[in-house]
Structure formats: C-alpha cells, structure tokens
Design a protein around this nucleic acid. Structure first.
Lengths: 237, 237
DNA sequence: CCCCTCAAACTTGTATACAATCACAAGATA
DNA sequence: TATCTTGTGATTGTATACAAGTTTGAGGGG
C-alpha cells in the first residue's frame, strides 16, 4: 500500500492511526455504518485532532470512511458496484498473468506445489479455520503474480481495495454462519482444484474458462448474500 | 428533512487547491523538483495552512508531491518505473476492451468515425497544435471504453496517474522542440491509422498486434527522451 | 399520547500558535 | 585559505481555540 522505502522509519502518528483504522475496517471489526469522531479517536490515541484528521482524510479518499461536515465520520458500507468493477479488473489482469505463465511453461513443474496448497485449504475448511483459509486463498493467487514478477498489478486489482477486501470475507464465508459458509468455501477450493487440473492436463482453454469462472464466482455469492436481510445493513443500497 | 444530495455543493477549499495544483503539475507548469511551501500556498489562496495541508497530503499520496519534514514539499520527478507499470496495465486492459468490442461487432460501423478522428489528428500535427493533439489522442482511446461502458477502467490505467500523464506529454512531443516532436507524433497517429485499418480489414490478429505495439511505443520514446540531457532533471534517477 | 420548540452537546472546518528540525550563511579558528 | 561553529530563518508536525452547522432530548402545549 504505502511505498515503503528501504529505511526503517519511525512510523509517523497519522500513518499509525491510518493503519490501525484501515485494518479494523477491513476485518469488519468496525462495522459499516458505525460512527467515529475525530475527537474520540484523538483521545483514544492520546493526541490532538490534527494527526487523526490526516488519517481520516486518507480513509475518505480510499473509500473506507465517509465524513460529513458537522455530522460525523461513518464507516462506509460495502459498495457492490465498486466490487464488481474491481472484480472485472481482476478477471482481465489475473487471467492474463496466469496464461502468460502457462504459455511460458512455468506452471507445469509447479503443479505438485499447487496441489499441496489446495490440500492445505481443504484441511482448513474441515477444521473451520476460515481466517486461515482467507490467507491461504490470498497466497494461492499471489503465487502467480510473483512467478511473473507482476506483484504491482495487485495494487490495482483489489489487493488493497477496502470494498473488495470486505466483500471477499463474505465470499469466503468468514462472516457467515457455519451452514452457509461451507458451500461457498468448498466451491472456491474446488475451483482452485480445477485450475490446477487444467494446468496439469495442459488444457489452455479449460484453464482460461476456469479462471474466469472463479473470478465471477464472487459476484454470484454476493448477489445472494447482499439480499439476505441479516447482512442488509452492511451493503450500500 | 432536507437531505438534498443532488444540490450543487460549493467546492470545498482543500479540493479547489488540490485541483489547481494537480493540473499545474500535470501540465508541467510546475516543473518536477520545484519547491513549494504550505505557508506560501496559504498566502496565495488567502487561507490558513490547514486547507492547504489537506491538499498537499493528498498530492503526496498520489505521488505528485513529496513532502519532507522540516525541509519542504517538492514536485515529484517523473518516475519511469511507475510509468512502465501503468503502461502494462493499460496494454492488458485496453487491448481486452477493444477486442471485446471487435468480437461483438460494434466496431465495423464506426470505422468512418475513427478515420475522421485520425484525419483531425493529422491536421493538428500540420498546424503544430500539440495540446489539441493530446486531447484528441485521449478522445480516441476514450471512445472504446465508452462503447463498452467500461469508463471506470480508466481510473486504473493512467487516465489520472500523474506520472503517466506527464510522461505522455513527452510521448506526444508537447514539451519538446519541433524537430523532435513531429517524428513521434506522426508515429502515434499512424499507429491509430493501422488500428483502424485492421478493424476495417476484420483482421483480429493484426488489431491485437497493433494495439500492443501502440501501447509499447511510449516506452521506446521515453527511454530515448529520458536519456536526453536537456530533460534529465525531469525524471527520477 | 403526540407534536412542536429550543437550547445544549457534538462534529467537522478553519485559524492561529508553538515545537522540532533542517539549510544556509556569517563569523571564528586553525 | 579551509574548516568548523553558530545563529537565524524557513518548513513541516502538532496542539489549542473558535466558527458553523447538526443532532438530540427535555419540556411544554395541545
């Protein structure tokens, strides 16, 4: 997110506050719609409003907060339109990165590694470790970017987009009841499996189709979940 | 309850300042390396440092300014690495958008329109109207995004990236001497022409190749220009 | 019970003041 | 002359104070 220079700088106060709030919002500990106040945060961080204000302004730019003059600052609701747009970018870019790696013959020797990751993911589901599964899913996708030295693409494909990040927690079922979450999680991992299978079979067209299907999956899940009354308050109307 | 969000809001001071500075930096009126100070800007805008500070912080996030504590705020040099990354995104995404439009058969009836735009571009070159050519180039590329209702993609493909924007002025020769600029400008317009020709000939592979060649053109131009001593000071080492 | 009035408490927007650090130039010293 | 010291101004970081608008809730009237 922030272009970390090589030097270990003392984290400045506004960055510290921004980092703390961003993470609390991304993990939904701070629920969409919750009201924050600059003064309250200032007391919490034992400083004046100025450093807090800088963090709040940045969170506004990133779409994590929405400050209204003389009213307050509210944690933004998850914007499904934004999620759909980021999803499209991700489909186009990540498909290209994976297929380029495939065409370069880089993926064949790595099929066993991929299958190992997928087995780990299955284990996490069986032990109901959904937070770990979220990390494992991130790792699975990061893998292809690193292989192609295209990590920077992720800055534009939802790796740091607060709306996509939060939506993904639902797609992976982290925020849902047990009976709801297993279906989608198993789906996602089985999609990973079919991607690995297509690579193993050297079936380029199948790989492309499975990738697109995988990325579009989040849409289907979200349309379903966002219509659920239980979660209505989390999404922008 | 008068929650009219449709009302035309008075542009807030920080946004006004941000907009003004962003444009001055994007057009290179404020040259890379130039030093600004919050207090000086505050006097210029007849306000206190607080609204200025907000604009400056945002320009820092966007990479247009680099503020150093107790030293000053400096207009950033053009970062060629960032330009290359944005160029890659643009190649992948815009190629996909254009080819999707091609596959949907949307482009055939619009070939005359494209040729008209290209003729206008040629006229601008002959009259040495490089600023207008920049706008016309923008319009030519926007055209495909609008056709596919994918305008939002441009937010991620350099339409608003300060480094790419400034680099593009060089690719189009706006900031260079007459003898230097004609070559590259004519190249760019003739590339547009070959793109239109490929569409007219229904040659999908040629269209894809010409698009990629067109997007990669900015790299060649920039490697050449950034090595020129005359412009060395504008680029990050 | 419902609705209106109004004042106090909040909240963000902005101004001013001070603190901490850096750059630079003038002067002292060898 | 060359180098170090030092003081002054400049610049960003932070704190406090006030301005302007919004929310909230108590109290009164119907």
């Amino acid at each position: 997110m922030n272009t970390d220079n090589n030097m270990v700088e003392t984290p400045k106060l506004p960055e510290e506050i921004h980092y703390y709030l961003w993470n609390r919002i991304a993990t939904l500990e701070l629920r969409p719609g919750v009201k924050l106040s600059e003064l309250g945060l200032a007391e919490q961080f034992n400083c004046s409003r100025i450093p807090v204000r800088e963090a709040v302004r940045r969170l506004n730019i990133e779409g994590a907060l929405e400050s209204q003059p003389q009213r307050g600052s509210f944690v933004s609701k998850i914007n499904l339109d934004k999620v759909r747009k980021v999803r499209y970018l991700r489909e186009v870019l990540e498909t290209r990165v994976v297929l380029d790696a495939f065409d370069a013959g880089l993926l064949d020797p790595l099929v066993p590694l991929l299958k190992g990751m997928i087995n780990d993911q299955k284990t996490m589901i069986s032990f109901n470790e959904m937070e770990k599964l979220t990390e494992a899913d991130t790792l699975f996708h990061d893998f292809f970017y690193h292989l192609q030295h295209k990590e920077f693409v992720q800055e534009h494909t939802g790796r740091y987009d607060i709306h996509y990040i939060r939506a993904r927690r639902f797609a992976l079922g982290v925020e849902r009841s047990d009976d709801q979450k297993y279906d989608d999680s198993i789906n996602i991992v089985s999609q990973h499996e079919r991607i690995a299978d297509a690579i193993e079979r050297h079936d380029r067209q199948a790989l492309e189709d499975e990738l697109k299907h995988h990325f579009r999956n989040i849409n289907h899940t979200l349309e379903k979940v966002s219509a659920n009354e239980e979660f209505e308050a989390l999404f922008e109307s």
